[in-house]
Every structure is written in structure tokens, then in C-alpha cells.
């Protein structure tokens, strides 16, 4: 039972990192970023490529993936999203386009395949990130089998969640972000540079997605389509938790991750998936704004 909960908790952790980024960008900017999953994928490929070409291990890959995804997020914000503020359907379609472009860039090895040049670590195939053996070898502690890699995922997620909480609730930039989430016009009228703060928020959320990608690469195969699957789960968490609520996102990721984990052990993955969707539908019917929401529209 403990091990089941533990596996659920590690799935929850990755889910949480993905959802945190989505939640703050949607909350602060009203942007549904369909390319968020691709930022996760880019994070995973950053880990794979930095392992091959720079000899980076997972510990060095995490900050690198954060930076790569954050810069890419900043670029997407500058080039696409900034021009479409307030047009939610348009941003949805445009970022979906960005997602497809990113997938193809990886699949086509940045276009190099047209010239017959192969880049190791890219392309349509499956990639693996190497995890140090001391993170893979399970050991026994007080009669319980501990999976060190899953523990590592949980610890990293806890640290990043605390960091996010600190940024949002204990710093000046956090006050500005929360003010923008609640009333962007009044925030601007109070001297908050909404565009700049939004761009930084977007970069931070993207960076978290990049880290989620590295952690995911440790127990799943890395491939160009991997982002598309996880982004749906991320949105489920955000919708259930309530947009822009840190606590809601954490609890909702915990709830959905555990339901998924427990049901897949008891029955199988397919049923687990169905149960998760049923729970999500139930919660949305019961509370359309999510479990925790500071505004009712």
C-alpha cells in the first residue's frame, strides 16, 4: 500500500510541476498555452542532449533545462502570445501551432535531415536519459522498499513548490503577479508593468515545465510526442484546482495523481484514466470554478 501511494506521489509530483506553470500563466495572463507540453518535451530533450554532448548528469541537466525552456517560453511570449492578449481562442490556436512546430523541429532534427545530416539524440525515435545507478537501485528502509529516483522527484517538486510559494507570496514580484491575476487594469493603473511581469511569469512557468521534462525523462522514454499527453493532465489539474490558486493546484495534483496511481495498481491504467476523468467531471459539475478560486465569474 505504501509503495502504491509512493508511486502515486511521484506521478503527482511531475503533474504538479506541469500544472503549476500552466496555472500561473493562465491565471496571470489568461493564456491557454497549448505548447506547454512541448516545453516539457524540450526539457526532456535538453537532458538527453546535454547528457550526450556535454556529459551532464541529471543534476546539471535540471538547471539547464529550466533555462532552455524559460528562454524558449520568453521567445514564444514575445513573438506570438504578446500580440494576442485578450483573444483566448486565438492564443489557443496559435500556441497549438507553436506546439506542432516544436515537435517537428525535434522530429526533423532542426531541419538537418533534409541535408542528410543526422543529429544523435534527436529525430522521430525514442531517446533515453541516463540516470545514475545510485538513483535507480532500490533499497530497503524500515521494511519498506524505497525507490531513490521517485524520492528524488518528490524532493525536487517539494523544493520547487516552496520556491514558487515564496516567489508568489513573499516577494514584490509575487504581489505584482497576484495583482495582475485579479485585476490587470487596476494593476497597471497602480504602476505595475503588466507586460514585463507577465513575460517573466510566462518564462518561469515554462522553466518549471522544462524541469518536469527532465524528471519525466528518468522513467519514461523521450520522444517528440511526449508533451501532448502530459499537457492534458496538466489542464485537468488546473481546472480542478482553481485557476491561479497555488494551494488548489497542489491539492488537485495530489488528488488526481493518487487516484490514478491507486486505481492503476488495483485494476489497470485504462480504468485509472477513466476514473480520473469521471472524478474531474464530477468536481467541475459541483464547483465550476475549481476547488479553490478567488473569483467567481
Amino acid at each position: 500500500m505504501f509503495e502504491t501511494l509512493f508511486i502515486g506521489l511521484s506521478l503527482t509530483s511531475v503533474l504538479l510541476l506541469i500544472a503549476l506553470g500552466l496555472s500561473i500563466t493562465y491565471g496571470a495572463m489568461g493564456v491557454i498555452n497549448m505548447a506547454h507540453g512541448e516545453l516539457v518535451m524540450i526539457g526532456a530533450y535538453t537532458a538527453v542532449l546535454s547528457g550526450i554532448y556535454l556529459g551532464f548528469n541529471i543534476f546539471a541537466a535540471i538547471p539547464l533545462a529550466f533555462l532552455t525552456a524559460a528562454l524558449l517560453g520568453l521567445l514564444i511570449e514575445r513573438v506570438v502570445i504578446r500580440r494576442l492578449y485578450g483573444r483566448i481562442i486565438d492564443t489557443l490556436l496559435a500556441t497549438w501551432g507553436v506546439a506542432i512546430i516544436l515537435q517537428q523541429l525535434i522530429r526533423l532534427e532542426f531541419g538537418m535531415t533534409f541535408f542528410g545530416i543526422r543529429i544523435q539524440g534527436l529525430g522521430p525515435g525514442l531517446q533515453q536519459m541516463r540516470v545514475p545507478s545510485y538513483l535507480m537501485q532500490p533499497y530497503e528502509f524500515a521494511g519498506i522498499m524505497i525507490q531513490p529516483y521517485r524520492t528524488f522527484i518528490i524532493v525536487v517538486t517539494i523544493l520547487l513548490t516552496l520556491l514558487t510559494w515564496f516567489l508568489m507570496y513573499r516577494t514584490s514580484i509575487g504581489v505584482q503577479i497576484r495583482a495582475i491575476m485579479r485585476n490587470p487594469q487596476m494593476a497597471a493603473a497602480c504602476g505595475i508593468d503588466v507586460r514585463r511581469v507577465s513575460a517573466m511569469t510566462f518564462a518561469y512557468g515554462s522553466g518549471l515545465a522544462g524541469i518536469a521534462g527532465v524528471l519525466l525523462a528518468g522513467f519514461r522514454t523521450v520522444m517528440p510526442e511526449m508533451g501532448a499527453n502530459v499537457v492534458v493532465d496538466g489542464f485537468l489539474v488546473v481546472v480542478v484546482g482553481g485557476v491561479g490558486s497555488l494551494l488548489g493546484t497542489v491539492l488537485s495534483a495530489g488528488l488526481l495523481g493518487q487516484i490514478n496511481g491507486i486505481v492503476s495498481v488495483l485494476y489497470n491504467d485504462i480504468i485509472a484514466r477513466a476514473v480520473v476523468f469521471a472524478v474531474v467531471i464530477g468536481i467541475i459539475l459541483w464547483r465550476p470554478n475549481g476547488l479553490f478560486s478567488f473569483r467567481s465569474r
Binding site: 504602476g191 508593468d193 503588466v194
Partner: peptide, 12 residues
């Protein structure tokens, strides 16, 4: 932009 007007000394 609005935020710069606020910083220039207009409050609402």
C-alpha cells in the same frame, strides 16, 4: 502605456 502614466504621477 498605463503603468508609465501611473508612474508619471496620475492615480486613479
Amino acid at each position: 502605456p498605463t503603468f508609465a502614466r501611473a508612474r508619471a504621477g496620475i492615480a486613479y
